[in-house]
Design a protein around this nucleic acid. Structure first.
Lengths: 212, 212
DNA sequence: CAATTTATGTGAAAGGAGTCACAAAATTGA
DNA sequence: TCAATTTTGTGACTCCTTTCACATAAATTG
């Protein structure tokens, strides 16, 4: 296990493997081969092995991988063995649906605070939904609340025009990770990370493939 | 302009260029160089030129690119010069927020029908929102309605357990493009296309980067 | 109108990522 | 215990993407 730069694609696939392994584990499967896992994840078996090889030796030759064991290892690699505390900024349509997005809860991602320019209007809307409501603060309290609640990731779900401003506030509040849903490029200083989720980019991709 | 296989990454970047050009056009900018566009999109200038070169010669040496002209050309390449008719399946939290997602409307993607297992319950919720409500049908009418309304893309926003079933129905209805939000791999026959939007995969990526 | 400037388009080089193929290691069965 | 079987881990190869560097072409200036 010598150090190498790990391709981003490898990390994405690990995330996929993790999901598959979770499912297998729930189904009571104990052992899996790279070929089986690959088939399930629709990748090449050598790819699976190579991806894992970046981080160590997790399998047993002639046998395969212990499902539970491998799953734990991958979670540790991805950093998804801990709970991540997130804040959501912009409690509009998309924002409020993410507040009650089941898959976050199921995984180890937890929204522990939300922010908006008009919090009172918004609290009602959020509380309507089932499950314990997330407290919504005024946006100018980001720094204070982020510190207090030990926020590590910010979800930007504001209109595009506000995204960079919000990103700046998150940087100011030392929130190092940003998941940006606003369809506009935001920039952050060295040491911070932004990942984008742009629906329309994926749609454009789809549209391209459909018209060719 | 000789034929070549075009990298998927190129298509993704074209989508980005398109957004930037749109903004520039709104700001009244007439001409842009590959260097300027590259800077704005945070890529390499040669990359911009090479991406465009797959499809033709759109610039003028010594000058650059006419913003409006290039934007039109890119839209034509991506197939985003036409309006795409979409259906949304699964009117839950995420689904209903996408029904009123402004960025779709602003672009040329239009949701013209929605489906759910329990449509009556759901119509009320959707109509609450501003803008003209999208009609919600029972899920077993997909084939019929998709034909009638000339649906080309389906958005799957059901729980993961239902995703493959819905995908099958869409295939049956000859809806060739699928944008899958349900965090599970779905497969479709040759000739159909699925693109995934998995929030938690991106979060896993972020978590990995933050813990290393 | 020639020299200078600017910025494209593209061949060549470099850099990554994915696949193949096989030696190494573990297990099974006689 | 040893041969046969299975499946990993990985070096080598191939393929694809990005970057570099420069010839080419348009515009501008004196």
């Amino acid at each position: 296990m010598k150090y190498q730069k790990i391709p981003e694609a490898t990390i994405r696939r690990l995330s996929r493997y993790s999901r598959c392994l979770e499912e297998m584990n729930e189904n009571g499967e104990k052992v899996v081969s790279s070929a089986q896992l690959a088939k399930k994840c629709i990748v090449n078996a050598a790819q699976v092995r190579k991806d894992l090889a970046y981080f160590g030796e997790f399998g047993i030759r002639g046998v395969g991988y212990y499902v539970k064991d491998l799953h734990n290892n991958i979670k540790k690699i991805l950093g998804s063995d801990k709970e991540w505390r997130m804040a959501l900024i912009g409690v509009g349509n998309l924002g409020s649906s993410l507040l009650s997005y089941k898959d976050f809860l199921k995984q180890n991602y937890k929204i522990v605070a939300a922010f908006d320019i008009d919090p009172p209007k918004v609290i009602g809307r959020v509380s309507e939904k089932l499950g314990k409501p997330v407290e919504v603060f005024h946006i100018n309290r980001i720094k204070e609340v982020a510190k207090e609640r030990r926020i590590e990731i910010g979800l930007i779900t504001t209109p595009p025009s506000e995204a960079q401003g919000v990103a700046n506030m998150l940087v100011e509040a030392e929130v190092r990770g940003i998941l940006n849903f606003a369809p506009v490029q935001v920039t952050v200083p060295e040491g911070f990370v932004v990942k984008d989720v742009f629906f329309t980019t994926v749609l454009d991709n789809l549209a391209y493939l459909l018209s060719n």
